[in-house]
C-alpha cells in the first residue's frame, strides 16, 4: 500500500480522531443460489481527517466496504477499527449519506436534520440544525418537505443530517451519482468546504474518476470478482483543484489505467 504524503491543504492542526484501520479477509454473501465473495483481502489505513475516495466498476464491492464501515454489515471475516475500537454496528461516531437521499418524507427539512439528535436538549438541537443547514446553504428551506426539494438540495439535507451528529467519519455512497453534471460539480466543491470546516475523516465511494481525483487525498482503486484493492494512489495537488490542469489529468489517467488494466486483463 502506498503511503500518502502530507497534504498542505489538509486542515492545519489535524484532528486526532477518525482513524480507520481496515483488515477484512473475506466478506461473503450467501444466497439461495450459492455464495458470492464480495470482498477479499482488504487492508487499508485511513488517517484522521483524511479524504479518501474509493473507485471501481460495479460489483467491485465498494458499497459493501462502505456498509461495513458504517456497521450495517457485520457478518464478515476480519475486523475494522475506528480509533482502535472494533466496529460492531452503527454508531453516532459515523455518519452516512446514501446514493438516494433517504430523507423521511413526513418530516420537514429541519426535522430531518434533527432526526438523530433526539438526545439533545431542544435548544442545543435547534442550534446544531441551524448550523448545519447554514453550512449546506439551506437555512431558508428548513420548513419545506423533501418532496418540495430538488435532487441536489435533498442530498445536501442528507449531508447535513449525517454531519449534525458530529461524526468522526463521514461515509458517502455515490452521493452525487443521480445529479446532473453541473450540480455535481457544485456539490463537490461544497463537500470540500464542509470537510475543511468539520475536519472529519471522509470516505466517499464513486465510479466517477474525475470526482475521486478532484476530492481525495487518496484514491483507492478496487477491482471486482472478488472485490479487492488494486492500488492506492495519492493525489498531491493543492486545493482547489483545476480539472483541466495537466497534473490533474495525469493522475486521472493513472487511475483509469489501473481500472482498465484489470478490465482488459
Amino acid at each position: 500500500m502506498e503511503k500518502a504524503k502530507g497534504n498542505e491543504l489538509t486542515p492545519r492542526g489535524a484532528p486526532k480522531k477518525g482513524a480507520l484501520h481496515i483488515a477484512i479477509a473475506r466478506k461473503k454473501f450467501v444466497g439461495s443460489q450459492g455464495s458470492l465473495t464480495a470482498l477479499r483481502d482488504i487492508s487499508l489505513r485511513i488517517r484522521p481527517g483524511e479524504f479518501v475516495c474509493i473507485v471501481g466498476g460495479s460489483g467491485c464491492g465498494k458499497t459493501t466496504l462502505l456498509r461495513i464501515l458504517a456497521g450495517l454489515e457485520t457478518q464478515y471475516e476480519g475486523s475494522v477499527f475506528l480509533d482502535g475500537r472494533r466496529i460492531a454496528g452503527p454508531d453516532r461516531n459515523r455518519g452516512m449519506v446514501f446514493q438516494e437521499h433517504r430523507l423521511l418524507p413526513w418530516l420537514t427539512v429541519r426535522e430531518n436534520v434533527a432526526f438523530g439528535l433526539s438526545r439533545l436538549s431542544p435548544a442545543e438541537r435547534s442550534g446544531k440544525v441551524q448550523h448545519y443547514l447554514d453550512l449546506v446553504g439551506l437555512r431558508s428551506f428548513e420548513r419545506q418537505y423533501p418532496h418540495q426539494l430538488s435532487g441536489g438540495m435533498s442530498q445536501r439535507v442528507a449531508i447535513a443530517r449525517a454531519l449534525a451528529g458530529r461524526p468522526e467519519v463521514l461515509l458517502l455512497d455515490e452521493p452525487f451519482a443521480s445529479l446532473d453534471a453541473l450540480t455535481r460539480i457544485r456539490m463537490q466543491a461544497e463537500l470540500l468546504q464542509v470537510w475543511q470546516a468539520e475536519r472529519s475523516t471522509v470516505v466517499l465511494v464513486t465510479h466517477d474518476i474525475e470526482e475521486a481525483v478532484y476530492l481525495a487525498d487518496q484514491v483507492v482503486v478496487m477491482s471486482p470478482q472478488p472485490g479487492t484493492i488494486r492500488n492506492v494512489l495519492s493525489v498531491d495537488l493543492s486545493r482547489p483543484r483545476e480539472r483541466t490542469n495537466h497534473q490533474f489529468n495525469r493522475i486521472r489517467r493513472a487511475v483509469l489505467d489501473e481500472l482498465l488494466a484489470h478490465a482488459l486483463a
Binding site: 458504517a70 450495517l72 454496528g89 452503527p90 454508531d91 453516532r92 452516512m96 433517504r102 423521511l104 432526526f115 438523530g116 451528529g165
Partner: peptide, 9 residues
Amino acid sequence: LLEVGQLYR
C-alpha cells in the same frame, strides 16, 4: 428508511 433508523441506533 429502516436502515436510517438503524444508523441512528
